[in-house]
Write a protein that binds this DNA or RNA. Sequence first.
DNA 1: AGAATTACCTGGCAGC
DNA 2: TGCTGCCAGGTAATTC
Length: 283
Amino acid sequence: MPELPEVETVKRGLAPLIVGARVLKVETRRRGLRYDFPDNLDLKLRDLQITDIQRRGKYLLFYFSDLVMLSHLGMSGSWRLLAKDQQDTSNKNSKHDHLIIYLLNNEGEEVTLIYNDPRRFGIIDLLAKEEVTTHKALCKLGVEPLSDELTGEFLAEKFVNKKQNLKQILLDQSVIAGLGNIYVCEVLFMVSLSPFRVAATLSDNIEKCSELATAIKAVLEKSLKLGGSSLKDYVHSDGSLGYFQNEFFVYNKEGQNCGICDVTIKRVYQSGRSSFYCEKCQK
DNA sequence: AGAATTACCTGGCAGC
DNA sequence: TGCTGCCAGGTAATTC
C-alpha cells in the first residue's frame, strides 16, 4: 500500500502526538508478520520514552533513545492512535490489530498505538541506534527522492549500461528509496517516458534525466500536500483519508482518455505488476 | 551475475 | 445468495 508520501504522512501525524510519550505496555497478538516479532518486545520497550520518529524510504523508525523500532507497512499495514476509551471507528478490522503499544503521552493521558495489517506483509524489527545505517533492510536503500541527492546526473549515472526498463529501475529501492507502483506510473506519464523504455537509452540524455528527477520530486510533494493516496485501506493515524488518488493521471485509469491525446490509458503487466500508461504519449 | 517468476497473506470485487 | 478467480500500495526467495 504505502509509498513514501503515505509513510511520511503517518510519521507527520504521529510525531507531535507521541514523541515524548512513555511506553506502559506492549502487546503482541500473534507471533509476527512476514517475520516473527522481536523477542520480548514488551520487556525491551516498557518504560522507554519515544524520542523521535523518522522515515527512511518506506520505513518508519521509532527512536527510543538507544533502541530503534523499525516498521514497514508492506501492502496493507497501518498505524492508528487512539485516546483511551476513544470510540474506535475503524475497528471493523480489529482482528488484524497485531501489535498494540500502550503509551502515556506528554499530557499524562493514556493513548494506544495500534499496528493493523490484514495481509501481514509488514515488518517490525528492533535494532540499536548504531545499526540504523547497517541493518540489512536499511543499508541497501538508495537515495531519498526529496533530498538533493536525487538529480538528473544521479539518474543518468544509474542508467549507464542498464538493460532494465524504467519501470523496474524506478521501483528498485536500492536506487531510489520510496517510490512504488502508483508514483512510478504517474511520474513516467508526467515526463512522457514509456515504462518499457530501456534505462541505458537515457544515460546520455541529461536533460531528460533532470526532467525525470524534477517530476519525481513534484509528484511526491504534491501527494504529501494532499495527505497521500487512499485507495482501499490506507488511512492516516487519526483515521482520516488522503486525497491524492483524485489527482491520478493514469494509475487505475485503464480505458479512460489520456487527457493529452485521443488514445485511452492502457494497462499492461511488467514483472508481475500493473503499469498504466499512454502508448501514444509515452515513448 | 542478473533478470524473471513465485511466494507470502487477506479481502474485495466482478462475473457467473 | 453464494461460489470462483483475479487483483491489490511491497519485498524476499527461488529459479532460470
